[in-house]
Amino acid sequence: MAASEQIVGRGIGNKVILASVIVVAIVWMLPIAWVLILSFKSNAELMISTGAAFHLPYTLKNYSDIFQTSGVFRWLWNSAVVSVGVTAGILILSSLAGYGFARAEFKGRDILFVLVLLGLAVPEQAVIIARHQMFSDLRMHNTYPAIILPGLSSAFGVFLMTQYFKAIPKDIDEAAMLDNASRFKIFWKVLLPLTVPAQATLGIFSFLGAWNDYLWPLISATKPEMFTITVGIASTQTNFAQSEGLGFLMAQAVFAGLPVFVVYLFFQKYIVRAVAGAAIS
């Protein structure tokens, strides 16, 4: 790796490249900076012109207002519950199934695996109408299970974990079998710890996917107290809010984006490593 860095980094070309990427990165952040500035302006001033953003006075009122309106906290909590639920569920189901498909033979396994792989070609949106009908008939909408469960049917995790388990050398579990360990014990004690990098990758993808999901929560979580943050913020993004409450809307956007952004900054290193892990498999 060090060598490749040297090669790429040689010459003055390197500095030019870096400088231009820095410029691009600054442009990249401009939209967010704009929203940030707007969030510190009063609604009344912004109603006349957003040009007001460039001069005094600035205010924290939009942020203090958030603490008085009930919605955002509740929505953040819902999103957290849903995302953690989906992530945990996917990790458990995919690890078990991945081990099963990679290591534990049974009759018809390979055909079954192909059938599961076919599921990769089914986009969530193609089944969304039927799913909505199912959950309606079961009277399950507006519950956490209704928002979480559909995410667990995705075949992506199973595919990823199967590949990962297959890549682990067979002698490791064969040695354990000679020690009279049960299948589940081998899975749990011997192989699962080896898959932590893949778990991290899958976990991050699943968490972000669930956190950012929009269409399913939009039609399943229709009671405001069950909104996820994505649906909740969308519900406040009305014409009215944009004309007469723009500053507040911007503050809400910043506030809703902040938690996951902070978590991201905190785990940044691991996320890079995790994505790298995905590429290896």
């Binding site: 959950f135 009277r139 909408h141 507006n142």
Partner: peptide, 13 residues
Amino acid sequence: DQLTARIRSGEPP
């Protein structure tokens, strides 16, 4: 749209 989805879900306001 959401009211429709909500009525269909059996829990209207």
